[in-house]
């Protein structure tokens, strides 16, 4: 009896304590709300403080037109990959930047570069009719573009739908290229040329990497090496673009790497032979017969060096 009583007393006490606790809890939560709304206000002040800061334009900007022109001097990855495919170079999955690496890209710098890289990978896969395998890369591109706030340039639903079959390669390429195109233009208009430049750089680096690391046969080796050599001019332009951002440490590292790549390209010579073209008309189209020639002189040694340098550079970009 006594035992039971004390147990009941305890439970009764607990009940009373619970009721008291409930009251305290109510009071506390009211206070808490005040504190939290107060806190929130405080934090917001911080973020919006930035708005009143004057926009410190750190970059010595080349004017937009110049940037646009120079970016357009970077060839579309389609160019070189088409050459590869036409000359019978075999497709190799291993050349691509693994889709899973996207998890490592946290800053705008990394994201922009790799948006370009994945873009080139996408085109490469499509050229070789590996359209269905591109879905993960499409999703990566979407994610990176979204992180960079330029997702509005790709119609993902259509892209995904089209990518379900290899028959739609052309449409896919169309959408992808127009997307990248518009995106670049937009970024420059928005004063985010640095992003645009990085994307272009990324596409170029990946293209060069694929070209240098693809399995060539004696038959197509020459042609491909020549195409590799032609990138000398592009690299010059890229460096010019990049130099206006050399205060930024990330850019700086990249510039250094590109410079050491450029050293290898210094051993390439390109000569131009100009001649008057002739025009034919057939099937309602004008067909140009190009009589001019460009001659690229590049040694195997140089190719090896370039291959090595681009590999280092590219792997640093994608890690």
């Amino acid at each position: 009896m006594k035992y039971r009583k004390t147990k009941m007393e305890i439970i009764k006490q607990k009940h009373i304590i619970m009721k008291k606790q409930k009251i305290i809890l109510v009071i506390l939560s009211v206070l808490l709300v005040q504190v939290i709304t107060g806190c929130q206000q405080g934090q917001r002040q911080e973020a919006t403080d930035l708005l009143s800061d004057s926009f410190k334009d750190n970059e010595l900007r080349l004017n937009d037109a110049m940037i646009r022109e120079m970016i357009s001097s970077v060839p579309n990855p389609l160019e070189i990959t088409s050459v590869l495919q036409k000359t019978g170079v075999v497709y190799s999955q291993d050349l691509l930047n693994p889709a899973g690496n996207i998890n490592n890209y946290n800053t705008n710098f990394q994201r922009a570069l790799n948006l370009g890289v994945y873009g080139t990978d996408l085109i490469y896969m499509n050229i070789y009719d590996r359209t269905v395998a591109t879905l993960r890369y499409l999703s990566n591109i979407r994610e990176l573009a979204s992180d960079l706030r330029v997702e509005q340039f790709f119609d993902y639903n259509t892209l995904n739908r089209l990518s379900e079959s290899s028959k739609n390669v052309d449409s896919v390429l169309f959408i992808t290229n127009t997307g990248f195109d518009r995106m670049t233009r937009y970024l420059i208009d928005q004063g985010r040329s640095n992003i645009a430049i990085l994307i272009s750089a990324g596409t170029w680096i990946e293209s060069l990497y694929i070209a240098t690391h693809a399995q060539t046969t004696p038959a197509n080796k020459e042609i491909i090496n020549k195409r590799i050599g032609e990138q000398k001019k592009v690299l010059d332009n890229l460096l010019l673009l990049m130099n206006s951002y050399d205060h930024n440490s990330d850019f700086n590292h990249l510039i250094e790497d590109l410079k050491s790549l450029k050293k290898q390209f210094d051993n390439v010579t390109i000569t131009y032979q100009y001649a008057e073209p002739s025009i034919k008309e057939s099937d309602g189209m004008l067909v140009v017969v190009d009589n001019s020639r460009s001659i690229v002189d590049i040694s195997d040694e140089t190719i090896k060096n370039i291959t090595r340098e681009i590999a280092l550079l590219r792997n640093r970009v994608i890690e």
Partner: peptide
């Protein structure tokens, strides 16, 4: 909006 977007975006970055 454009300028300030860039500002904030860069700040986060």
């Amino acid at each position: 909006y454009r300028e300030n977007f860039n500002k904030i975006n860069q700040q986060i970055d």
